[in-house]
Structures are given as structure tokens and as C-alpha cells.
Design a protein around this nucleic acid. Structure first.
Length: 896
RNA sequence: GGGCGCAUAGCUCAGUUGGUUAGAGCGCUACAUUCACAUUGUAGAGGUCAUAGGUUCAAGUCCUAUUGCGCCCACCA
């Protein structure tokens, strides 16, 4: 396809400008005492990641904030990096080598890790390249990886610090075990989802009298092989006399006791529950309490083990079927009913979790949580939207110890050493210790486990600055002490709700524990990206819209703008491909309007100072209006950005440019475009608008800005819109009265156009219009702006009718010349209108006086909180303004 | 079991501490193509703001209850 001047072509501009920005180091940030810092750390995407819409949204928001504050002349650091994503990455590489027919065990630990590094070198920067396509202005010279050498040092340092504080312990507990990944998982990594299953009622014969049995209900019958008791509620009359008796466990023929515990719910199932202490977290608790035996019946891959008797080596689900068959045969399966249960699933591979007894390392969380709760309660850290505060606090207050050991190879190996000889001492050490402290043996071995990925991610806001080696120059030549002092705490963390617990909460704890300060002030939680039917976008559902495809087709600016404009604060985002057309069309509109202005621009006007010019010149209504509107827009955009209302700001920018600047302003000045005043205003508004749009649409604004502002001669300094100053709000230019006047004028034009359309008068036919204005103000407005009316409504002559000249018909087409009679404001019964206004005035007056009285009331002033009083005062002021406005209208009507 | 969110135009959704005539995009109808842009312009149709009460001079907005949908957390075997 031939590329046409008439259409903006993002492919021709985006990569080139990104290169220009990078080559001129415009993203780089350094401690600078003359500037205020502004810092964001990126939520590091997984090295296995490829850019999806969630990333696109997340990073667009961060880039908007960074670019905005950079233009506000702050020293802006957006710290980039990637996460080693232990399980996820290991899985990917395992799949890769599986194609060669090998398992990781065939390679051995060292060789396998080598392969993972190889994979990382080859594919690990994919997501980074994609973030660049999006326009992300990170300081790439600072890029970090959660497994790079120095980061690993930080992780070990932190582990040892917690160890020395006694916050790390080992325990043999029932934890979440993924049989596919063959590792322990934290509670957060094993989310519960509903599963359609069955409730099986099993008959357990009494030992003394095998003809009688106790019926227990279970959803996982295969675990019965590991049962070591049956429990009933001590208050349960049905079973009271059986407490203490024994049962002969079917299939295994093991004697097990009937115990009593109040934990048992009498109403569920039969009120009797089989107890499998090694395969259920509740049963584990019962097992501990009643000193039961813990029998593990499964291998780590969820095949039954040697304790499972004849079921050995069957998969857990296969064993389930066979066991049910066997029980049925023995008439021990009483019945089966459908039952919806909620089961933990591995967050990486979605396999159903097996609660599994094993030795794992844990972090005691309560002491870490305490200050993290305080920080949020005291408002040092704020969540946007606010409601997440409660979710955070609720989790924090009920925090459980964190299982941090993983039985995989890819990750930070736990820096603990065991003495092979005396088996007494466990050492925490960043390097291999020389000898055992207890027996002096040199025969030491390191713990086989690696740490949970999130055990490195939670240090991200300061580990990325090479903490804790403060006084040592980092590999990139910076001094961590200086960087941290300047850039930490960071300002805002932008993330999705699903990782509040994984990451946000833990970063707050780590920041407070190790830096003695919060890691960020604001947490902006955006919504989850879903498809148009509300489903989460995922590859397996096949409903993915690939952001890179959108970038190729419509451009990064279109993607960014569309994504932002449909993301209201904290709501989920529903996407379909058509949504991106809006962004593409907007980029194109800007492109064409700018092209129009540039071709008609007299470059002499560029150097004019807008404020001086504004004070000195008598400006036309259109010029005063567009300037006022621009600064009103600027004010609103800033306000919305400060409150993280990105979509509001985006929609305001869109509406201003398209409907006010293009549809009205440019159309008005078109006939007089060479006029100096119009030239100046048109240029200034476009130039400033490009600047405030830049954070949203960095490429298209740069492309146009360069054409508009930068002379052909090459300059010494790199010139870019991204380093320009954000415009200052000029309050003196904002004039609400002017805005209202222009709106009135536009309303007249629209009505004339409406009549023309109704009467099917083509635009090439000029018409004569007789106006019957309701108020003096309207009459003045029309007289003064006759030229605009003539241009935009195609009027050949205009008559203003007096009161008594009222035409018989309100609007009619007469004779060949065609006259339009128009009541401005439509057909209005003036008497009725007056009545309405009077009622309204009376209402408002009453309201003001009631507020006045309240504000005079001593009791109220004494008792009411300060904000309430302020609010009352403020609302009284609003009412007074409203009253003034109403009275003007009343006068106006009276004047006709 | 606990917590949170949503319900506004045909569709997808905005609507800020209550305050003029409830908005946008898409879709729909009619007209317009030498004029920056058909990825366009002009005009139009389309709303009992889920339901029922309440607070207020004033409620889409605040309170209470109800209905429907979605999400998160929790040890219902």
C-alpha cells in the first residue's frame, strides 16, 4: 500500500524516535541536588514473559507518570529489570530440553542451570525489546535481573540477616505441594478454585464388631490409605459411645482409633471424619494434637508409594478409581454424591495441589508485618483506589508464616550449610564456610533447596540500587549510598491486584525491615485486562489480543491511548480489537490537523511570548475562548493525573483537541488563517497541546513537534518534546464567561444548521436568517460575531428582530431566497421561564440561609469536625455563586 | 462463612467533596467528498441512572433493604 501524506504512519516514526531518545540518553537519571527526584521501579516482568495487554497497560501508566514528571522538570528514574521467575522459567527450559528427549535429572543440577542461563541469554530480553516498542522511557543503563551476581549477594545478605534474627525456621508440616513441578509452594502460590467433584461415603468397620461400621465422607478417597484415626465431635450423641473404640481400616487392615475433637463439624457429611495427618492441613493439626501417626502414602509426583500397599506406583487419580472399585466390591462404598469443592491449584501449571507432609523452611511473618500494618494505617503509604487498603490490612493482620524453600534448581540456593559429620550445626553463610563450628569438620554441604522467587522480588526497590554495599561503587560506577539517598523511597508503585500479597505487601515489609523506610508512597492498583466477555485474557482461552500486533497495525500511540482511555480507576478492562481504532483515529486526527497548521504557519510567530501577547492584544472571542479552554484543560489534566485518573485526563485531551480545537476553532479561523493573531494562538495552542499529550502519545507528538518547532538547520543540542517544560497554568487566561459566550454562539450555529438539515437546504445555498434573541447578551453576541455565523452556518444576511417584530411562525422557509426565523434558545415561554428561575432562586436562598445559620451556631462549630465545617463553608460559597448566576439569567430575561 | 466490586443510551463504559439541560466511543438514521483529515464533517434518534424506602433546599452520586452478575479471602472433610 502506498503511504499517503493524509494518514499518519507510525511505522515510519516510532522506532526512529525511540532510537533518538536512547542515543541521546534522554531516559538516564542521576542524583541531582538541584532537582526534585521522582522514582518508579518497574514490576519486573518474568524473563519468560512476552508482552501481553496487562504489561501494556501497566507500563503505559508508568510511562505516563514518568514522562509527565520529567516534563515537570523532576529528575525521573524509571528503574527497569526482569525477574528470574524460578518455577516458570525452569518449566520453560524443561519443556525445551524435553524436545531433545532429556530430563533435567539427566543433565544434573549444574548442567541444567547452565542451560537455563543459556536460554536466558537468548530469550530473556524479548520482553525488554517489547517494552521499548511500547515507548517505555526506562533508564536502561540501570537494568537489573533478580539473579545477577550482585542481586544474589543482596538476597543472601537478607536471608542471613533474618536467620540471625531468628525469623527463619525449619519445620515438617503439611504444605502445598505441586506434583507436576515437584516443589513446595506458598499459600499465595496455590489459589483455590472450585472443582466439580464427588463426596464418597465410605464404611469403616468397627474392629470389635465387623458387621457394624462407621460411615465417613471424603472427596479424596485415595488418602484413606494414610488414615491413622477417625474423628467425631465429643458432643455428637450418635457416636459418643464409640469414642476410644478402634476401626479396622479397610484395604490396609490397620487398626485405627476413633478420637473426639471439637474441630469436627457435626453437620457436615456423617459427622465422622477420616483423619490423614500427612495429607491434609486440618488432619495435620489433629494429628499433632492427638499424637497420631503420620503416614505419607505418596511419592513427590503424586504416585502412591510403598506405604500404599498394593496401590503402589499408581497415580493418585488412578488409585482413587481402583480403591473405589475395591471398596464397592467389599460393599464398603455406601454412596457417592456430586460435590463442588475448592482445591488449591499450582499458579504456574494449574495442577491440583497435594497437601503434603515435608520439611520446609519458613519465615516468621508476624514481626515483619507489624510495622507494615502501621505504615499503611498511618497513611504513610496510600492505596489508589482506596478500597485495597482493607484487603491489604486484612491479609497482613492474618498473616501466615511464609514457606520459602522450593525443590527446584533455578533460583537462589539457600545459603545454609550442614555439617556432614556431627549433624548438629546448621550455618548461614554467604560463602562456603571453612569448617563446622561444633566439630571442626570440613565436610560441609549446602542446602539443596532454592528460595521462592518472591524472596528476591520483595527486595526490588532497594536491591536494584546495589544495597547493602553502600560505599562500594556498583558495576555501573554509581555509589549505592548516593542513589538510595536520592531515589529512595520511590514515589509510586503501579501494579495489578493479583500481586498485592505476593509482592506489594512483602516489599513494604522488606523496605521497613532493611531500609527502615517505606519503599513507596503510593500504590496504584489498576484493573485486570479481560476480553469483551469478561474473561481473563489467557493463551489457553485463545482470547488474547496481542499488543504487538496492535502496535504493528495501529502504532504504539494508538495502543497506549486506547488502553488508557478505557481504563477507569481500578476497574477491570474489557478489550476488543475495535477499541484500538479510536486511538488510531485520534493519532491520525492530530496528524492531519497539525499538517494543516504547519502548511499555513508563518514561522515568525513562533518566538512570540504568549502571556505578553495576551495582555497587550485585543483578542477575538474565538482566540480568547480556545486559550481559556486550553488552560482549563491543562488544569483538569493535572488534577486528574495527581489522582491517578488517567482515563479522565485522556478523555479530556481527546475531547478538547477533536471537538473544540478542530471542529470549532480551526473551522472558525480558517478564512482568516493568515491573520497574525490567529497564527499566534493557533501555533501556541497546538504546541502546548502536543506537550501535554506527549506522556500519552509519545511518538506522534514528537514527530509533529519536531516538524512544528524545530528549524531545518541542525542544532547542537538534541531537541525533543520529552525534555520540554510542562506548560504552566495561566489562571489569568482562564475566563469562564468567555467560554460560556462561545458556547452560546456555537449553540446558535448548531440550531441554524439543524434547521437547514430539517429543511433540506444544501450547504451551497446561502440563507437569510432572522434572529429573535431572548436576551440582550445574546443579541450582542450575535452582532459581534456575525462573521463566524456567516462562515460556519453559511448565512448571506442576518437580521436581528425586535420584540414586537415576532414572526408568525417560529421557523419557516419563505420565498426563493429562503429566510430562517430563529428563536434563540428554542421556543421558550418567557413567563414560564421566569417562574422557574424565581423558584430556583428562592430555593437556593433558603439553602444559603440554612447554611448560614448552621455556621453561626456555636454548638455546631464546637462539636463538628473541622472538615465538616470547611465543607459547609465551601458549599455555601458554591450556593452563592449559583445564586449570582441565576440572578444574571433573571435580569437577562427581564431585559428582552 | 467473611470481604470487595458492578448494575447508567442498542453495545462497551465514564460520571471526582451531592449542585445548571446525565456524557463518551462504537453502532444506527439523513445529508455532505476538489477545501488538513471518509481513520472525515454536519445534523438526528436513543435514558423511569437495577428495585423499594430514607436523608437533603437539591440524589445517578449519600444511607438502609432487596434482586441479579463478577471477583478475592477462609482449615466444609
Amino acid at each position: 500500500m502506498k503511504s499517503s501524506l493524509k494518514q499518519y504512519n507510525p511505522q515510519q516514526t516510532e522506532d526512529a524516535w525511540y532510537r533518538y531518545w536512547s542515543e541521546n540518553s534522554l531516559f538516564a537519571a542521576h542524583p541531582n541536588s538541584s532537582k526534585e527526584p521522582f522514582t518508579i521501579v518497574i514490576p519486573p516482568p518474568n524473563v519468560t514473559g512476552i508482552l501481553h495487554m496487562g504489561h501494556a497497560l501497566n507500563n503505559t501508566i508508568q510511562d505516563i507518570l514518568i514522562r509527565y514528571h520529567r516534563m515537570k522538570q523532576k529528575e525521573c528514574l524509571w528503574m527497569p529489570g526482569t525477574d528470574h521467575a524460578g518455577i516458570a522459567t525452569q518449566n520453560v527450559v524443561e519443556k525445551t530440553i524435553a524436545k531433545e528427549g532429556i530430563k533435567r535429572q539427566d543433565l544434573g543440577r549444574e548442567k541444567f542451570i547452565e542451560r537455563v542461563w543459556q536460554w536466558k541469554e537468548e530469550y530473556g530480553s524479548t520482553i525488554i525489546r517489547q517494552l521499548k516498542k511500547l515507548g517505555s522511557s526506562c533508564d536502561w543503563s540501570r537494568i537489573r535481573f533478580t539473579m545477577d551476581q550482585e542481586y544474589s549477594e543482596t538476597v543472601k545478605y537478607v536471608f542471613i540477616a533474618l536467620w540471625n534474627k531468628g525469623l527463619i525456621y525449619r519445620d515438617n508440616k503439611v504444605i502445598n505441594w505441586c506434583p507436576r513441578c515437584q516443589t513446595a509452594l506458598s499459600d499465595e502460590e496455590a489459589p483455590h478454585h472450585q472443582v466439580e467433584g464427588h463426596l464418597y461415603y465410605l464404611r469403616y468397620p468397627l474392629n470389635d464388631d465387623p458387621s457394624h461400621y462407621l460411615v465417613v465422607a471424603t472427596t479424596r478417597p485415595e488418602t484413606m490409605l494414610g488414615d491413622t484415626a477417625v474423628a467425631v465431635n465429643p458432643k455428637d450423641k450418635r457416636y459418643k459411645k464409640l469414642i476410644g473404640a478402634t476401626i479396622l481400616l479397610p484395604l490396609m487392615n490397620r487398626e485405627i482409633k476413633i478420637i473426639a475433637d471439637p474441630m469436627v463439624d457435626m453437620k457436615f457429611g456423617t459427622g465422622a471424619v477420616k483423619v490423614t495427618p500427612a495429607h491434609d492441613p486440618n488432619d495435620y493439626v489433629l494429628g499433632k494434637k492427638h499424637f497420631l501417626e503420620f503416614i505419607n502414602v505418596m511419592h513427590p509426583d503424586a504416585r502412591m508409594n510403598e506405604s500404599a500397599g498394593k496401590y503402589q506406583n499408581m497415580d493418585r487419580f488412578q488409585a482413587r478409581e481402583v480403591i473405589l472399585e475395591d471398596l464397592k466390591e467389599k460393599q464398603l462404598l455406601e454412596r457417592t454424591e456430586a460435590h463442588v469443592l475448592s482445591a488449591g491449584h499450582c499458579y504456574r501449571c494449574h495442577t491440583i495441589i497435594e497437601p503434603y507432609l515435608s520439611w520446609q523452611w519458613f519465615v516468621k511473618m508476624k514481626p515483619l508485618a507489624k510495622p507494615a500494618i502501621e505504615a499503611v494505617k498511618k497513611g504513610k503509604i496510600k492505596f489508589y483506589p482506596r478500597r485495597w487498603t482493607k484487603v491489604y490490612l486484612n491479609w497482613m493482620e492474618n498473616i501466615q508464616d511464609w514457606c520459602i524453600s522450593r525443590q527446584i534448581w533455578w533460583g537462589h540456593r539457600i545459603p545454609l550449610w550442614y555439617c556432614f559429620d556431627c549433624k548438629k550445626e546448621v550455618f548461614a553463610s554467604a560463602t562456603q564456610p571453612d569448617a563446622c563450628r561444633a566439630c571442626g569438620s570440613k565436610n560441609l554441604i549446602q542446602d539443596e533447596n532454592v528460595l521462592d522467587t518472591w524472596f528476591s522480588s520483595w527486595l526490588w526497590p532497594f536491591a536494584t540500587f546495589y544495597w547493602p554495599k553502600l560505599k562500594e561503587k556498583s558495576p555501573r560506577g554509581t555509589l549505592p549510598e548516593e542513589d538510595l539517598k536520592y531515589f529512595y523511597p520511590t514515589h509510586v508503585l503501579v501494579t495489578a491486584p493479583e500481586i498485592i500479597f505476593f509482592w506489594v505487601a512483602r516489599m513494604i515489609m522488606a523496605g521497613l525491615e532493611f531500609m527502615g523506610d517505606i519503599p513507596f508512597r503510593d500504590v496504584y492498583i489498576h484493573g485486570t485486562v479481560r476480553d469483551i466477555e469478561g474473561k481473563k485474557m489467557s493463551k489457553s482461552l485463545g482470547n488474547v489480543i496481542n499488543p504487538l500486533e496492535i502496535i504493528n497495525e495501529y502504532g504504539a500511540c494508538a495502543l497506549r491511548f486506547s488502553l488508557i482511555s478505557i481504563t477507569s480507576q481500578g476497574q477491570d478492562v474489557y478489550l476488543s480489537k475495535e477499541r484500538f481504532e479510536q486511538g488510531r483515529n485520534f493519532a491520525n486526527k492530530i496528524w492531519n490537523a497539525s499538517r494543516f497548521i504547519i502548511t499555513h504557519l508563518n514561522r515568525c510567530v513562533i518566538s512570540t511570548d504568549l502571556c505578553v501577547f495576551f495582555q497587550k492584544e485585543q483578542l477575538s472571542l474565538a482566540n480568547r475562548w480556545i486559550l481559556s479552554r486550553f488552560y482549563s484543560l491543562l488544569k483538569a489534566v493535572e488534577k486528574n493525573l495527581a489522582q491517578y485518573r488517567f482515563n479522565e485526563a485522556a478523555n479530556l485531551l481527546y475531547g478538547f483537541f477533536w471537538h473544540e480545537f478542530c471542529d470549532w476553532y480551526l473551522e472558525i479561523i480558517k478564512p482568516d488563517i493568515a491573520d497574525r493573531q490567529n497564527q499566534i494562538v493557533m501555533y501556541k495552542v497546538l504546541e502546548k497541546f502536543l506537550r501535554i499529550l506527549h506522556p500519552y502519545m509519545p511518538f506522534v507528538t514528537e514527530e509533529i513537534w519536531q516538524k512544528l518547532c524545530v528549524p531545518a538547520a541542525p542544532s547542537q543540542e538534541p531537541l525533543s518534546i520529552m525534555t520540554q517544560t510542562w506548560p504552566h497554568i495561566q489562571e489569568q487566561i482562564i475566563d469562564k464567561k468567555v467560554e460560556k459566550q462561545a458556547e452560546n454562539l456555537f449553540a446558535i450555529i448548531s440550531q441554524i444548521r439543524n434547521m437547514r438539515a430539517n429543511l433540506e437546504i444544501p450547504l451551497e445555498n446561502s440563507v437569510t436568517v432572522s434572529l429573535f434573541p431572548h436576551t440582550k447578551t445574546h443579541a450582542m453576541l450575535v452582532v459581534q460575531n456575525k462573521r463566524i455565523l456567516q462562515t460556519l452556518a453559511k448565512i448571506s444576511s442576518l437580521m436581528i428582530l425586535e420584540k414586537n417584530q415576532k414572526p408568525s411562525a417560529t421557523l419557516s422557509a419563505v420565498t426563493k431566497g429562503i429566510d430562517l426565523y430563529l428563536h434563540f434558545g428554542g421556543i421558550i415561554d418567557i413567563a414560564k421561564e421566569k417562574g422557574k428561575i424565581e423558584t430556583k432562586i428562592a430555593q437556593v436562598k433558603k439553602s444559603i440561609s440554612s447554611k448560614e445559620q448552621r455556621l453561626k451556631n456555636h454548638d455546631f462549630l464546637k462539636k463538628a469536625p473541622k472538615e465538616v465545617v470547611e465543607k459547609e463553608t465551601e458549599s455555601k460559597r458554591t450556593l452563592e455563586d449559583e445564586l449570582k448566576r441565576l440572578e444574571t439569567i433573571k435580569e437577562d430575561i427581564a431585559g428582552t
